[in-house]
């Protein structure tokens, strides 16, 4: 059983959903993001998503765009990212780590080499935003051979026929994009989510996490109750950005503030 499957199974036993925070690699620098990554499980992260910075994140809102730009400025590359996860894994063998990003840096690195190095670093799953199932052939086989889950996005626009196709290419868990829009903008209502889930549940046995627009502890609690997990990204990155100095460097406030917010979210998710 993969780390992702084990974690969701354990949480099911506990009777609650997962809290999945997001951080951007090397935002605002390698050391700070590694320290944040290491502190996240203790602060209540059940799974962790790490953003792979890309110059043109066309599905992301301003908050993640800025985070990606800071990461790139601080020298984020895939080797640096793998180094970061490798360091994290030395002390944490259990918390699943998922990479989220865009296809071009992965293709430039080489899909096979990427999957091998990602697996070796201790990464569990991949979310490649601009790689729909129709274009996944370059990754599908090498991801599977290296034990990496390809986590599929399902959107409100995904109709039933398409849902089947998308799910046939999914593993690990399903990421439900709760709104039609970019990250960190609108939020779906609990009622929207309640209405959306049965369709997904009927089509898959995989756990479902909800993301896009989840900001507050209340929203995280509701999403993790309605589905099996809640992804919080822009809200945490916004807090991080607000603690930086005028040159965009981390300050003494950076880690405590982000971790305090994560703890609040975790408290709500754990009821």
């Amino acid at each position: 059983m993969s780390r992702i499957a084990r974690r969701f199974a354990a949480l099911k036993q506990e009777g609650r959903g997962a809290l999945i925070p997001y951080l951007e690699a090397c935002d605002p620098d390698f050391e700070t993001s590694l320290t944040l990554l290491r502190a996240m499980p203790e602060a209540g992260a059940d799974l962790i998503e790490i953003g792979m910075p890309f110059s043109d994140p066309s599905a992301d809102g301003p908050v993640i765009q800025m985070a990606a730009r800071r990461g790139l400025k601080a020298g984020a590359t895939l080797p640096r990212l793998f180094e970061m996860v490798h360091a994290f894994r030395k002390n944490d063998p259990d918390t699943p780590v998922i990479l989220m990003g865009y296809l071009n840096p992965v293709e430039a690195y080489g899909p096979l080499r990427f999957c091998e190095d990602a697996a070796r670093a201790g990464i569990d799953g991949l979310i490649i935003v601009d790689m729909p199932p129709e274009e996944a052939s370059v990754m599908q086989a090498c991801a599977a051979e290296n034990g990496l889950d390809i986590i599929r996005l399902v959107a409100p626009t995904t109709d039933d026929a398409r849902l089947k196709l998308v799910l046939s290419h999914a593993s690990g868990f399903v990421y439900y994009v709760s709104i039609t829009g970019i990250t960190g903008t609108r939020s779906a209502s609990d009622a929207d989510l309640e209405a959306a889930l049965p369709r997904l549940r009927a089509a898959t046995d995989l756990p479902v996490a909800i993301g896009f627009g989840i900001r507050t502890p209340e929203q995280a609690a509701a999403a993790s109750r309605i589905a099996d997990g809640a992804v919080v990204a822009s809200a945490l990155l916004k807090t991080l950005a607000e603690t930086l100095d005028a040159e965009g460097r981390a300050t003494a406030e950076t880690l405590p503030k982000v971790l305090a917010q994560l703890q609040e979210l975790a408290k709500a998710v754990r009821g």
């Binding site: 599905a59 296809l103 935003v129 601009d130 790689m131 729909p132 129709e134 274009e135 599929r152 996005l153 399902v154 959107a155 409100p156 626009t157 995904t158 109709d159 398409r162 998308v166 994009v177 039609t180 829009g181």
Partner: peptide
């Protein structure tokens, strides 16, 4: 090809 987020694929 069609390298877009799932939200846009159906469109």
């Amino acid at each position: 090809g069609r390298f877009v987020a799932e939200t846009l694929m159906p469109l």
